[in-house]
């Protein structure tokens, strides 16, 4: 396989465009009046038929589309529901690609283990971070809310190369965040552990020995690129 392909660039551009508008397939009437026109699924089929490498379809079509949406979201140009339908459209394309990656796993930027700390049930922020990191190519292992340190450590043992994210929304569970970081450090002293959530600050992150803090998902993507550069 060579670096460049002879695939028509416009198929990839169409895939990216359909991801952005959330048009998963021809059946879908989003944007209004587009029913019957090809969506992500159909364009991905065409790309496969033209022998575009699945890696390229994933990176330059699907993920490229979601990244545009992620940036627009960071700039307050689109709302979450628009990000969500874009993510769903991306998944429609990924489902087409999955069989082609049968031998190895789907290629990914790395594995990210994410949870809300013990005693805390807030998960809207956590879920958003997961979704947009997935769009940036990370494989997400979401360990849920109210995560005891042992649960986090167990998940890391299963995915030893992962980076870790912790979320806390209550001043009273910030303490649990500190404990979670300590527990992780005991078994994995050099693990990349990033933290976030409304009451959490850069300073607090340093104090509890986390590797870094990010205020929102797009900052988290950049932070991870710095802390754990792509291989």
């Amino acid at each position: 396989m060579t670096e460049t392909t002879d695939a028509p660039k416009d198929i990839l551009a169409n895939i990216a465009q359909c991801v952005q508008t959330g048009k998963a397939d021809a059946n879908m009437n989003i944007p209004m009046g587009s029913k019957g026109q090809p969506g992500v699924a159909e364009w991905v089929d065409q790309a496969i038929a033209k022998d575009v490498p699945p890696q390229t379809i994933l990176a330059e079509g699907l993920m490229a589309g979601l990244q545009v949406i992620g940036k627009k979201f960071a700039a307050n140009e689109v709302f979450i529901p628009e990000v969500l339908i874009a993510a769903r459209a991306m998944h429609a394309g990924m489902n087409k690609l999955k069989p082609l990656f049968a031998e190895q796993d789907m290629p990914s930027r790395g594995t990210f283990v994410m949870g809300t700390v013990q005693g805390d049930l807030h998960d809207i922020g956590k879920n958003l971070v997961c979704m947009l990191l997935e769009g940036a190519g990370w494989r997400i292992i979401d360990v849920g809310v109210d995560c005891a340190p042992e649960k986090l450590v167990a998940a890391i043992k299963e995915h030893p190369d992962c980076a870790v994210g912790l979320s806390a929304l209550l001043t009273t569970t910030m303490v649990a965040m500190g404990k979670a970081v300590s527990a992780i450090r005991e078994s994995f002293p050099d693990k990349t552990v990033i933290v976030g959530g409304a009451p959490v600050t850069e300073e607090f992150a340093k104090e509890i020995g986390a590797s870094g803090y990010a205020p929102d998902p797009s900052a988290a993507i950049d932070l991870l690129d710095r802390l754990q550069p792509a291989a």
Binding site: T171, T172, M174, V175, A176, P199
Partner: peptide, 8 residues
């Protein structure tokens, strides 16, 4: 009112 950062 609520507590400052501390465990309960």
């Amino acid at each position: 009112f609520t507590l400052p950062p501390m465990e309960v």
